[in-house]
Simulated scan of single mutants.
Amino acid sequence: MRRRSSVALSAAALLLLAGCAAPERAIHLGSTAIGIDNPRSGGFSALEVTEGGARLIAVSDRAVLLRARIEREGARITGLSQVALTDLPGRDSTVPENSDAEGLATDGDRLWISYEQRHRVLVLPGGRELPRPPDTRVLPPNRGLEALAIDARKDLYALPEWPVDGGFPVYRFDGASWAVAGILPRRGRFVPAGADFGPDGALYVLERVFVGVGFRSRVRRVTFGDGTIAAEETLLSTPPGRHGNLEGIAVWTDAGGTLRMTMIADDNFMPFQRNEIVEYALP
């Protein structure tokens, strides 16, 4: 009886791992730890890569902005240099619910930063607060505007971590007001963690789920039609523990014309979680 149970459990485990190891279209180029000796370094929840992969901007869920140069050996990231950590406007370590920055987007001159707990989007420089997207009143405190992205027309897009009516609304801000650009279908238990528009005009959505032994990550490429989502495809679906708690994503083209996807992990300032940068090549 024990042997049969053991065999059954082993078979079930194999089936589970097989389900996790879905075919991947993205090619892993490497991962590296973020070795910044500063107590404010950690909790990175959003990412932008600029200057053709030479520099990055990231924000932490303690309202700290990171700017740095990306060091590489060939195609692989080896570390960061020229590191600068600055506090975001209004950062208050005594009121953490006001400092929980989760999303980041930039057009080169301005930064947009989304916060959960107290749901809002700020524009830098200046710290102006945008009108709030619809439905934010129904979002739980820790499941707010998790992802931000900006398209070629400089329209801003935001995704919450909490589903509304069975899917994740993709809010679009045209400079005056918010509207729903489409509903991203919820597939499995994954929830949005980050987003970025690639040079191809598609929206890349990073999702995650905690499965007890680690995090799984998934990336979907989304294209929009006339006021709705026209198509979606899964480019990456990782097994548990391959990476840390990936929350930020940037999609860009390198000098050779390869589409790359750079992601950053939120270690929640916990010593047993990974503070890392991960990079993939995309088809």
Rank of each mutant, 00 (worst) to 15 (best):
M1A: 14
M1E: 13
R2I: 13
R4C: 01
S5H: 09
S5Y: 01
S6D: 12
L9V: 10
L17N: 06
L17P: 06
A18V: 04
G19D: 06
A21S: 10
A22L: 01
H28T: 01
L29W: 11
G30M: 02
G30N: 08
G35L: 14
S41W: 07
G42D: 02
A46D: 08
T50P: 02
I57R: 14
A58R: 12
V59H: 10
S60I: 07
S60Y: 05
L65D: 01
L66N: 11
A68W: 14
R69L: 04
R72I: 10
R76F: 15
T78H: 06
L85G: 13
V95T: 09
P96D: 09
E97K: 02
N98E: 13
T106I: 06
W112G: 04
I113Y: 02
I113G: 04
Q117D: 05
R118E: 09
R120L: 01
V121S: 01
P131T: 03
R132T: 08
R137Y: 05
L139I: 13
P141C: 03
P141K: 13
N142G: 01
R143M: 06
L145K: 02
K154A: 03
K154F: 10
K154W: 03
P163D: 02
V164A: 07
D165A: 14
F168Q: 06
P169D: 09
V170E: 03
R172I: 12
D174R: 10
D174I: 11
G175I: 05
A176K: 14
A176P: 02
V180G: 08
V180L: 08
A181S: 03
A181V: 00
G182A: 11
F190S: 01
F190M: 02
A193R: 02
A195Y: 04
F197K: 07
F197A: 10
F197T: 10
G198M: 14
P199F: 03
L203M: 15
L206Q: 09
F210P: 01
V211T: 06
V213P: 07
G214I: 01
R216V: 05
S217V: 04
R220I: 09
G225S: 02
I229G: 06
A231K: 14
A231R: 11
E232H: 05
T234I: 10
L235R: 06
P239W: 00
P239D: 00
P240E: 02
R242L: 11
V251D: 13
G256D: 15
G257H: 09
L259R: 08
R260E: 12
M263S: 07
A265G: 14
D267Y: 10
N268S: 15
F269S: 04
M270T: 07
P271F: 00
R274N: 01
Y280C: 01
L282Q: 10
